[in-house]
Computed example of a mutant assay.
Amino acid sequence: MAPVAATIEELEKLSEFRAIVGKIYPESDEKLLPWLRARDLDLVKAEQMLRRHIIWRRNNEIDALKTWRSPVVLYPYMQFGFDKANCPIFMLPVGRWDIRSTIESGDMALSLRFVYQALETVVSTAHKAGNSQGIIILDFDGFTYRQIAHRTVLQGFLEVIRVFDANYPELLKSCYVINAPKIFNALFTLIKPVLNSRTLVKIHIFGPNKPKWQEALLKHTESDQLPPFWGGTRPGRDEFCSDDWFMEPLPPNFFKRGSTNVDEFGEEWATIKVPAREKVLFEYVVKAGENSVLKWVFKTDGYDIGFSIYFGEEEDFPVQYQRVNSHEEQEEGFLNLEKPGTYTLEFDNSYSRTRAKTLHYSIGMSES
């Protein structure tokens, strides 16, 4: 690994830190220093962080991930190549991951284990290249409201961020979020408080302006390290290098959009099944001082569905419950969110004993 670049103060603290934790973590200076930096050279806090990390690794059997193989490729990712400083570059096509379906099928534990293995892969790849950091590209193309309009999915997102921040200090050299849709702003608002300031400044967010994010990606990377779609010249089966992704080649149509419903505003419609005797909830949080509008449009195939919006804990209903004949006519509306707090949009099929309902919808919150 490359020699550690540290200030005189850091080196002095590093010597003290080694005397404190050397027996429980007999690693090199390059591996010790990130824990100090993550806690602003506070020896007590850095020791606490490191001890918690050791316990986390043991409790989650992280070392066993070196030989573990997931029974299914939940979330494809790829290590493209290296930047000009020989740090590995990883692509995560988050917008193409069907996170919600995986979580709803009961695979949260498997999902987390898959993600932990990916983080360990970043670490080992960087170390093999003589570095301690990696670059992560998060491509949100294809990401919809459906993915985060689910409490457990949001909890999963936040858990991954907490684990990353608590157990992989200084691993991230830089993170590029590309093709970020408007809904990403809501997601990032939830994520920001979990990340420390040293990590936040390394995150660069770009919308769907392809020339702009391609220019950013190529600023510190040679073009032959990236597939053509992301601005490079790396050879492969197609412009996405679909034959070289994690664990197995991607299917030929992975990056192609399927047939989608688009409303008059250009918003994509999502489709879900609302099971018999169940409800589907979409939560939207309004902060103090925000002026927001919640808009919705939906329809169902063949049968009606219950619909309401409540504020807080089902005591205040700005939109009263009713069974809507959305199979006969498209239902749409908007609501000014005047009070800070949580608004829950509910689709209710609990009255149906055996019949699931197919729901097509486009829901979004925006500033008024």
Rank of each mutant, 00 (worst) to 15 (best):
L337T: 06
Q133K: 00
L187P: 03
N86P: 00
L154A: 04
D263W: 00
E27F: 10
P181G: 04
W245M: 06
E314R: 14
G341R: 08
Y116Q: 11
D141G: 11
N179L: 08
W35C: 03
D98Q: 09
E239P: 00
A186S: 15
G302V: 05
L41N: 06
E215H: 15
A109R: 08
A109H: 07
E27G: 03
E367L: 12
M247A: 14
P340D: 11
F90C: 04
F265R: 05
I54V: 04
R162N: 14
G236S: 05
F157H: 02
S350F: 04
A126D: 02
E16H: 11
R37Q: 06
L92P: 01
W269C: 04
M247N: 10
S362F: 01
E47N: 02
N291F: 09
T189A: 15
V201I: 14
I309L: 10
Y361M: 13
L294V: 08
N179P: 05
L337M: 14
R100A: 02
L218Q: 13
K210E: 10
S259T: 15
T260E: 12
I148A: 03
I20P: 00
K210M: 07
D139M: 03
A2Q: 13
I178D: 01
N253F: 09
K210S: 05
E268K: 10
A46Y: 01
A129K: 02
G333E: 06
E27H: 14
N167P: 13
T260M: 06
T144C: 13
T358Y: 07
I191S: 03
L74S: 07
I8G: 01
V73T: 10
E170K: 06
F255Y: 15
E10L: 08
I20G: 00
L250C: 12
F334A: 05
L11F: 13
S292E: 12
R198Y: 12
A126F: 03
E313S: 13
D107C: 09
P252C: 11
Y321H: 12
A2E: 14
K339V: 08
A118P: 02
A149Q: 04
V177G: 03
L92A: 11
F347S: 02
A2C: 05
S292I: 08
H360L: 03
F254W: 12
Y116E: 08
E332V: 00
S105V: 01
R323S: 14
P318W: 02
F246C: 11
T300C: 13
P235L: 00
I205K: 01
F246W: 15
I136C: 04
